[in-house]
């Protein structure tokens, strides 16, 4: 659903931030070199400003990389009414709680859907 759209926006920003970061690191480096060559204080203060901008971009990039879009996995617990035998599986389409889903392999009692839930995938 909208997670795909957010993903797209996120990727766009990550690309923009990465390019900007590289550009500003290069600018900072070139000003630093010019400072070292010409020994002009103006170059060092400009390189300080561009470095601050680069740090700010890096923080934003880290933030964009950190935001995670949660993913879920669906789990269904099937249980035997007679002996309590149970197992987990992926729910089928149209499954609901208390639906008959067959015969117990252990005691041939009734198997029912006991619970359906979703779990975050790490």
């Amino acid at each position: 659903m909208s997670t795909e759209l957010l993903m797209k926006i996120r990727i766009k920003w990550i690309i923009i931030y990465t390019i900007l970061l590289i550009v500003f690191i290069l600018i900072t480096a070139s000003f630093l070199i010019m400072y070292m060559v010409e020994n002009d204080a103006n170059y060092s203060s400009i390189s300080f400003i561009t470095m601050m901008i680069a740090v700010w971009i890096a923080i934003n990039l880290a933030r964009a990389l950190k935001t995670k879009i949660p993913k879920y996995r669906y789990i269904e617990v099937v249980k035997c009414l007679s002996c309590g035998y149970s197992f987990k599986k992926k729910p089928d389409e149209g499954d609901y709680i208390l639906r008959d889903v067959g015969i117990c392999p252990q005691c041939s009692g009734r198997l029912i859907v006991y619970s359906i839930y979703r779990e975050k995938v790490e």
Binding site: M1, S2, G94, Y96, I116, Y117
Partner: peptide, 16 residues
């Protein structure tokens, strides 16, 4: 809005 959106997804699946 995101909650209602996930509701659309959940209801179309038919799970609790």
């Amino acid at each position: 809005v995101r909650a209602v959106e996930s509701n659309v997804e959940a209801v179309s699946k038919g799970f609790p």
